[in-house]
């Protein structure tokens, strides 16, 4: 696991998200109304919608394309939909957000 700084907490809007470009592809960094942060692959398992542009509420993100709901802790789509999106670890140090990525084989 390698950790990368992403930016300040206040750069991610409450109830919404931002995206980051990484060697592992686009990752959505999401923040709920209480300020909790989550990171998931920025592709809805349904039709690839950018989850960084969805509504975040509680532990759920609503995909902006067809309103699939994804649980941000497990990455699983909520029933009746089925699918899964990869989650990534985040940590904060002071105001800075850090993203954990699996180490790349070089």
């Amino acid at each position: 696991m390698e950790w990368f700084p992403l930016g300040r907490i206040d750069e991610v809007p409450l109830g919404g998200g931002r995206y980051v470009e990484t060697p592992a592809g686009q990752i959505a960094v999401l923040c709920n109304e209480a300020g909790e942060l989550f990171a998931v692959h920025n592709r809805c398992p349904h039709r690839g919608g950018p989850l960084s542009e969805g509504f975040v509420s509680g532990k759920t993100v609503f995909c902006p394309l067809h309103n699939w709901q994804i649980d941000l802790e497990s990455g699983q789509a909520l029933p009746p939909d089925q699918g899964c999106v990869k989650t990534f670890p985040l940590k904060t140090e002071g105001e800075e957000i850090w993203l954990g990525l699996p180490e790349m084989q070089s």
Partner: peptide, 11 residues
């Protein structure tokens, strides 16, 4: 409108 990515992470 948050057009640009929050960060570009390069390995």
């Amino acid at each position: 409108i948050h057009a640009a990515p929050l960060r570009r992470v390069s390995a």
